[in-house]
Amino acid sequence: MTPADATGLASELAELAADRALLGRTSTAERVAAILRGRITEGLFRPGVRLSEERIGGALGVSRNTLRESFRLLTHERLLVHRLNRGTFVRVLDVADIQDIYRARRLVECAAVRGLGAPPYVLDDVRAAVETGERAAARADWQELGTANIRFHQAVAGLAGSVRVDDMMRGVLAELRLAFHVMADPRRFYEPYLSRNRQILDALDAGDAEGAERMLGFYLEDSRRQLVEAYPAEPESAAR
């Protein structure tokens, strides 16, 4: 392990330790999995990284059995992969995964907008994500902009008002974040869509769900094509 890797690991574990309070007195594998899923979505754990049971369990203050069960849950969600005699790694996606993720996103996100009733719409979460993204771009914080973009799409799916859709999209969007991690220039993949997020919000604000859905459909197709064209044919990772 290089000094830079050690520094990065220490930072990651410190952030996880801050999540310990979220577990409260009812520490469960599901809650641990939710924390790790959220941290993957935020970009804390990158594709190919081996997850240390001892260090992560210590940071969160949970037993090894609880942590292993949370790993199993996230493996089922296709976020982690277990390698015999090697450990558990954050999964690396391939192009087929990306195509399937966008297929699911189009079905869910566009349907959520299409299913809106009469305006006005409750857009608090959508608006918060757009504004967070704009502030991150002003600071040139491209990782935070990526997280804000993920939250924007989670909020769009949330317009469906379905707990099941929300749960499904959390997993789908966490997977998507793994794809963006292997790209050399994250700014290139996030910044151009920030203004489009604002345009979709403005259309919804104006009560134009049909226009917002149309813009969202073009947006997702452009994003899918851009990512697939630039994605490495063989992303380098120990988890492959």
Rank of each mutant, 00 (worst) to 15 (best):
F152K: 03
R240G: 09
V81Y: 04
L80K: 10
A10E: 14
E42W: 04
Q143E: 15
E109H: 09
A17V: 03
E30L: 13
L216E: 01
I101H: 12
R103V: 13
E191L: 14
E69W: 01
R105K: 15
A59S: 09
L107D: 10
N197F: 06
R225W: 09
D97G: 03
V126P: 01
L194A: 11
T75G: 00
Y231L: 02
E30P: 04
I56C: 05
S195P: 02
L227S: 12
V90G: 03
R46G: 04
I56V: 13
A155H: 06
D166L: 07
V108A: 04
L51A: 01
R78K: 08
A14E: 13
R114F: 06
P192I: 11
Q99Y: 08
H181R: 14
R164W: 09
E53Y: 08
L93E: 05
N65Y: 07
A238L: 14
L74N: 12
G161P: 10
E191R: 00
L80Y: 00
A203R: 13
A59Y: 02
T75N: 00
R151W: 11
M183S: 06
F89A: 02
V108D: 10
R50Y: 06
G57R: 11
R20C: 06
S27G: 05
R170W: 09
G58R: 01
S11D: 13
Y219T: 01
Q154D: 08
A239G: 12
L23P: 03
P232M: 10
A238S: 15
V90Q: 07
P192K: 06
L16P: 03
D124C: 00
H82E: 13
V95Y: 05
R164C: 08
L13P: 09
V122E: 13
R37G: 00
D5V: 15
Q154L: 14
R105C: 12
A157M: 11
L60W: 01
L44K: 06
A157N: 12
R106E: 11
M215V: 12
R127S: 13
A104C: 13
V113P: 02
A238T: 14
S237L: 02
H76D: 15
R106G: 12
F45D: 09
V62T: 08
R86E: 15
A128W: 08
V95I: 14
A138T: 09
L176F: 14
G217H: 10
R39P: 07
G87I: 12
V172M: 04
L22V: 11
L159R: 05
G43C: 06
R214M: 05
R105D: 10
L220F: 10
T2F: 03
A184H: 05
S11C: 09
M169N: 04
L194P: 03
R198Y: 04
D185P: 02
P3H: 05
V163G: 11
D97I: 07
L23S: 02
T26A: 14
R170Q: 12
P232E: 02
V163E: 15
S52A: 03
A209P: 05
G58H: 07
E30V: 11
L44I: 02
I150D: 08
P47V: 11
N85T: 15
L123F: 14
S195R: 10
A137T: 00
F189K: 03
A21C: 03
Q226M: 15
A59M: 00
T75P: 06
N85D: 15
A112N: 12
H181G: 06
G146M: 04
V163Y: 15
H76F: 13
G24P: 02
A33S: 07
A14Q: 11
A179P: 04
P119S: 03
S52P: 05
P186H: 03
T7M: 15
A128P: 08
